[in-house]
Each structure stands twice: as structure tokens, then as C-alpha cells.
Amino acid sequence: MRADPRALRFGAAITTLVLASVLVTGSSWLLAAQTVVFALGAAWRSPYAMLFKALVRSAPKETEDARPPRFAQGVGLVFAVVGLAGYLTGITPLALVATAAALLAAFLNAAFGFCLGCEMYLLIRRLLPAAKMEVSQ
């Protein structure tokens, strides 16, 4: 499966804006919405990518492997779920730290094209050698 890198970058930029808004407003509803977006992104149904496709009709110059960004969306999902749990239970430090971690990853992707979630993969595998993660095509 191939991904349009422009759509990924666009999605990361919107994610950055949404997560920054969550931190400023403290809205658990907005974070819940972003959590759903992460889950859809991990399932390769990213609404942000679909929005990009609707707005930009031209074909990408080159495409890239869809597995790294999908995995990264899964990492984002974990942080968003933890952040959401923090907001809903009123454990503010947990909510702020987890949401900020997701914001950091989204910002690095949007501004610099670095995929922090992807880079975490090998480190996670080094720590958990027994876990074999499913690589779905």
C-alpha cells in the first residue's frame, strides 16, 4: 500500500493544530475526536488524508510505503487514549504529558518531516524482543 507524502504532512499539520487546541482549551471532546482520527489513520482511513484528496486533485510526484505512517498513527492513538484518560479522570499531569507527547510527534512530522512514531519502532522491538508486531500490507 502506498501513501501520498503530501497528505501525510497535511494530516500532521492539522493534528498539530488540534492537539495544541486540546491543550489550550482542555477540551476532552476535541481530544476524543482526535483519538478517533488516530484510530482511523491506523486503519488507513484517515479523515485528514481524505480531506487532502478532496482538496488537492493532482497526483503525487512520488509515493511512499504506507506502513510507517500507519504504525505512527497507532503510536499517536496510544498517547491520545492515555491523554483522554487523564482528562476524564482529572489527573491533569497525565493528560498534559500524554497530549504533549502526541503534539511533539505531530509537530516534528509537520514541520521537519520526521516520523517519531516510526523511529520508536526499533526501540520498542529492542525492549520487547518477544513481541512480533503484525505487518499488514
Partner: peptide, 19 residues
Amino acid sequence: MTGLWVVLATLALGTLIGV
């Protein structure tokens, strides 16, 4: 208010890491 500072600190850290 804390949230705004967290956003600013995170973006500053992200810029540093990125550069």
C-alpha cells in the same frame, strides 16, 4: 493557562529536536 505553556514548551522542544 497551563495548557498554553505546555503547547509553547512542546513546540520549542520540537523545534530544537528538529534542528
